[in-house]
C-alpha cells in the first residue's frame, strides 16, 4: 500500500466520520413544525397557539407555523393530525372540544388516535353574580335554591361544555335544583347577568375579570384545585363543594409519535412557561400554567373523558 493510498483511506474515513457526526447532530427539529388548531384566525384556540409560537422563538430553533383547520367541531383538525407523519412535525393545540365531539357524534378519530405531548394551561372557571345580588357565597345560592327549587336561573353554556358540567355538578353535590339557562358565548352570558336577566353565571375568569375590577360583578368562588393566583375568592372545595373543573389547553401529536420529539416538546413547554415575557402575557389573560408531561396528560385526558361521558349520560345527551 503506497503512501497515497493511505492518504486516500484517511480522507475517506474522515469524510465518513464527519458525515456521521453531522447526521448525529441533525436531531429533531430540523424543519418547520406545524401547530394545528380547530379555531378560526383570531379565536381563542388560534391565539393560544400563535402566542405560544411567538414566545417559543429562541427556544425552538425552527419556524412554527399555525394552521387553521376549523369545522366539524374540531374533528377535522383531529383527523388531520391523527393521519400526519409521526416524526413530530405536526402537533394539535387541544381544548376540551377534543373530548366532547367524539362522544356526541361519530367522528373518524378521537383523542385515542393522538399521542399526548404536554398540557400547558388551565382556564380557571368561576361562579359570579352582579354586584347588586344579595348572594356572597355559593352557600347563599344553595340556601336560596332550597327555598325555591328549580327557580334560580343559572346561566351556563351548551350541555357538554365545561360550564354546563359545573352547573350539573353543583346541583348534584349540593342536592339542589336550579334552572340552567344556555348561552352560546361567555360575553352574552355576562351581559345577561349584568342586566339581571339571569341570577348567576359560570364562566371563564378571563371573560369577567374587567367587570370584577370595575365592581360590577362579584365572583363567589372558583372551581379550581388551588386558589386562582392573586384572587380574593375561595375555591368551591374550600366551601365544602368538591367540584374541580377547568378548560385545558395542551399539545398532542399523532399516535406513535417519535418519543424523542415528545421529550423535546416537554422540555420546550417547561422552558417557555418560565420565560418572563410569556408569563407577563399569560397572567394578563388569566391563564394558569398547568404543565403536565405526556404520561400525566394521558391520565388526565382519560380521567376527564370518563367524567365527561358519565355526565353526558346523566343528562341524556348519550345513552
Amino acid at each position: 500500500m503506497g503512501r497515497n493510498a493511505v492518504r486516500l483511506w484517511l480522507a475517506v474515513a474522515l469524510v465518513l466520520g464527519l458525515s456521521l457526526t453531522a447526521a448525529g447532530q441533525a436531531r429533531y427539529p430540523t424543519k418547520p413544525i406545524v401547530l394545528v388548531t380547530h379555531s378560526s384566525p383570531g379565536a381563542g384556540g388560534d391565539l393560544f397557539l400563535r402566542n405560544l409560537a411567538k414566545h417559543l422563538e429562541g427556544i425552538v430553533p425552527v419556524p412554527l407555523v399555525v394552521e387553521n383547520r376549523p369545522g366539524g367541531a374540531s374533528s377535522r383538525a383531529v383527523t388531520y393530525v391523527a393521519t400526519s407523519p409521526k416524526d413530530g412535525y405536526v402537533l394539535y393545540g387541544a381544548t376540551p372540544t377534543l373530548l366532547q365531539t367524539p362522544i356526541i357524534a361519530k367522528t373518524p378519530h378521537s383523542y385515542l388516535d393522538l399521542q399526548p405531548v404536554a398540557n400547558v394551561f388551565f382556564d380557571p372557571m368561576i361562579l359570579y353574580v352582579r354586584s347588586a345580588s344579595p348572594w356572597r357565597s355559593l352557600r347563599d345560592v344553595v340556601e336560596a335554591a332550597k327555598q325555591r327549587p328549580g327557580q334560580i336561573r343559572f346561566g351556563a353554556a351548551t350541555p357538554g361544555s365545561v360550564e354546563h358540567m359545573i352547573a350539573h355538578e353543583v346541583q348534584k353535590v349540593a342536592k339542589i335544583q336550579v334552572q340552567p339557562v344556555t348561552f352560546e358565548g361567555g360575553g352574552d352570558l355576562l351581559v345577561a347577568v349584568l342586566g339581571g336577566h339571569v341570577d348567576l353565571g359560570v364562566g371563564e375568569y378571563a371573560e369577567v375579570a374587567s367587570q370584577v375590577q370595575a365592581g360590577q360583578v362579584r365572583v363567589l368562588n372558583s372551581f379550581t384545585e388551588r386558589r386562582v393566583p392573586g384572587a380574593a375568592f375561595p375555591t368551591a372545595k374550600e366551601l365544602g363543594f368538591p367540584i374541580v373543573r377547568e378548560k385545558f389547553r395542551g399539545l398532542l401529536g399523532p399516535k406513535g409519535m417519535d418519543p424523542e420529539a415528545v421529550a423535546y416538546w416537554e422540555r420546550a413547554i417547561q422552558q417557555v412557561l418560565r420565560k418572563p415575557e410569556y408569563r407577563q402575557y399569560y397572567e394578563s389573560v388569566y391563564l394558569v400554567p398547568a404543565y403536565m408531561d405526556h404520561v400525566q396528560f394521558r391520565l388526565y385526558l382519560d380521567r376527564t373523558n370518563q367524567t365527561l361521558r358519565r355526565y353526558l349520560k346523566e343528562i341524556g345527551v348519550i345513552r
Binding site: 350541555p159 354546563h164 340552567p180 344556555t182 346523566e314 343528562i315 341524556g316 345527551v317
Partner: peptide
C-alpha cells in the same frame, strides 16, 4: 332528534 334531559 335526541332530546336529552338537560334540554329546555
Amino acid at each position: 332528534i335526541e332530546r336529552g334531559f338537560a334540554s329546555d
